[in-house]
Amino acid sequence: MISFKNASVTYPGGVHALRDVTLDIPPGQMIVIVGLSGAGKSTLIRAINGLVPLTGGDVRVDGRSVTQASGRQLRELRAEVGMIFQTFNLVKRTTVLNNVLMGRMHGTAWWRTLLGRYPADDLEYAMRALERVEIVEKAYVRASNLSGGQQQRVGIARALAQEPKVLLADEPVASLDPPTSHVVMRDLQRINRELGITTIVNLHFLDLARQYGERIIGLREGDIVFDGRGEDADEQVFRDIYGRSLTADDVLEAKAEL
């Protein structure tokens, strides 16, 4: 259970990224957050694991406050929240396996991190995570040698290796081509359904959002302007969220035809 209570974020310079957001996310849901760039999607997601600190209000994950957590408590909380990034954020100069093992580092002794020697258990977790995204054969390949879609699957494996209760995905398909986008979205859907991990995904393509979102939350200038089931989000709803008429850029399939 994730709950936002009057959460606000104001960046230095006076930009209001989130305004007084109150929101409850029950466990196991697959949620898609939509909105224009700059609407506060990224901030909302990063508030959950404390990468962006709130300037007002509170966020709680399973009852624990993110805003009041100490450094160590915050790291423990982050260990239970996996994250996937638009640009994959892999260390390209090292192996796929080393990248996935990063997901295990919260429980690792400092000297093990220093030497890069993880316990056999952690190795097993990492391997299973790679098997789940069907890329285990690349375990000892340098991350830079993978395609974009493969790199994002490694990113997912890294998050899975954490054994997370919550998975945050910040524009996971924005750097991918349409067919690969569907592969990655289906991976996320499967993880959500088979493992019961609460999954929160930022997207800006409305067709993807409708197809994969159990629940859709629309953000506009830091305010929640829509919160409902995926099938209820018709074009009028998206026009309201975007504050303008829809264009070909808002639809993945249209992009595919170009």
């Binding site: 977790y125 299973r128 098997e131 789940r132 069907e134 285990v136 375990a139 054994e163 499967r190």
Partner: peptide, 20 residues
Amino acid sequence: MTKLDTPIAAVSQARPRRPR
């Protein structure tokens, strides 16, 4: 090994050997 113990979706994949 709780969650990841669930059956793996794909066909059995061979884990590569650690290169020397």
